[in-house]
Amino acid sequence: MFEARLVQGSLMKKFMEAIKDLVKEANWDCTGTGISLQAMDTSHVSLVSLLLRSDGFDPYRCDRNISLGINMESMAKIMKCASNDDVITIRSEDHPDNVTFVFESPNQEKVCDYEMKLMDIDSEHLGIPDTEYDAIISMPASEFQRICRDLSNIGDSVKITCNKDGVQFSAQGDTGIGKIALKQNAVIDKEDGQVSIELNDPVSLTFALRYLTFFTKATPLASTVTLSVSAKNPVAVEYRVDDIGYIRYYLAPKIEE
């Protein structure tokens, strides 16, 4: 059988919020390593990849590798039934038709049990090569969310330009142009609230703000976001989640015709 108990159940709620608007259905792959998911959005422009390591659960039991084919909207609805301080357990059989979510209140006075039907999902798994990125930008996740929100008022796309002076986000639309420049903080120790840039080569790429805005739904999961950019390659937007894993999004750049 498969059983994974997450004491900080609110994390599962937050992971769900971070993917449900982007991905309609996906397989949650459960192995001894943990729970992972890889899925493209419906238009196949972006990819989301997440890992919840087994050591983040207590206990974690996976007798046999299984894939739970899940409709995200249905799972999100069930996750909304869990309170933020609930302990969440995910449970299924070795050849499952259903998955069970159990929500326990902290004092265990209330136990909710939701059983959800699984789907057969024939998903395409993409191999993501290790890439030498031209620039790796770390910044407060809330700052990145704010930039995406603000520039969405100006245009559909954001041009991310990174050079020795810092990083600039710019958008252009019918009403004009918006530019937001961030300088690297003097103290480079990657503490919360810092902007740090590892620059190998100056780089400038354009991305659809609609998708970056979807990615910022992961903001409640982490204080810092990392943008890894490389000429003509997809940007990797990573939120590392303390003690359990990560969620990464990849978005193909827009190419000028």
């Binding site: 972006s46 990819l47 798994h125 796309s157 990849y250 190419i255």
Partner: peptide, 14 residues
């Protein structure tokens, strides 16, 4: 004009 490319064109299918 900017062309949006598909993610699959960058990552190989396994």
């Amino acid at each position: 004009c900017e062309l949006q490319t598909l993610i699959r064109e960058y990552f190989k299918s396994q």
